[in-house]
Simulated assay, not measured.
Amino acid sequence: MPDVLVDLTPLETPTRFTGIGRYVEKLGSALADLSHSERQGLEIAALTALSGPSPVGPLTWKGSPSPLFGDGDVEETRWLMARRTRLAATLRTRAPRLFHATQNLGTPRGSGVPRVLTCHDVVRLVMPHDYLAGRPAYRWILHGLEIARFRSATRVIAISRHTADDIIRLLGVPASRIDVVPHGVDLDRFRPPRPGAEAEAASAILRKWSLADRPYLLHLGAADPRKNVDTLIHGFARAKLEGVDLVLIGKLKPSHQATVDRALDEIGRPPSVRQLGYVHDADLPPILSGALALPFTSTYEGFGFTPLEAMACNCPVIATGLTSIGEVVGDAALLVPPRDPGALASALRRIATEATLAGDLRRAGLSRAAQFTWRKAALGTVDSYARALRR
Score class of each variant (00 low, 15 high):
C313F: 06
I167P: 00
F190K: 04
D166P: 08
Y131C: 13
W374I: 15
S298H: 00
T231V: 05
E301V: 06
L8D: 04
G41F: 10
P174M: 02
V273I: 15
S152I: 10
V229D: 08
G304R: 02
D261W: 06
R368H: 15
P225G: 13
V336M: 05
A223T: 04
A175Q: 15
V336W: 05
T163F: 06
S210V: 01
D188Q: 14
G243N: 05
G268D: 08
P195N: 07
P65I: 00
I249W: 11
A158Q: 10
H143P: 02
F17N: 03
P182G: 03
L8P: 02
F69D: 05
I178V: 15
E146D: 09
A212Y: 07
R189E: 14
I249Y: 11
P195K: 00
L187K: 12
A345Y: 01
R226C: 09
R214F: 00
P270V: 00
G144D: 11
M81Y: 14
A345I: 04
I178L: 11
R189M: 12
E43T: 13
V123N: 04
S367P: 12
P114N: 05
K26D: 04
T353Q: 10
A358H: 02
L34P: 06
D165Y: 09
I157K: 07
A388W: 01
T118K: 12
G302S: 14
A370C: 12
R92G: 10
M81N: 15
H219L: 05
A378W: 07
H129A: 15
V123M: 03
S152P: 07
R191L: 09
V329I: 13
L276H: 07
K240E: 15
M311Y: 02
Y23H: 05
L171Y: 14
L170N: 04
L220V: 02
A158L: 13
P114R: 08
L217W: 01
F372M: 13
R78W: 09
E309Y: 10
G243L: 03
T323E: 11
S210Q: 10
E354K: 03
R161W: 09
D7F: 06
L105W: 11
H256W: 12
P337I: 08
D188L: 12
T259E: 08
R92W: 14
A164I: 03
L220M: 06
R191D: 09
I141Q: 15
D331Y: 05
R109K: 11
Q275S: 08
T381P: 11
F17Y: 06
L284I: 13
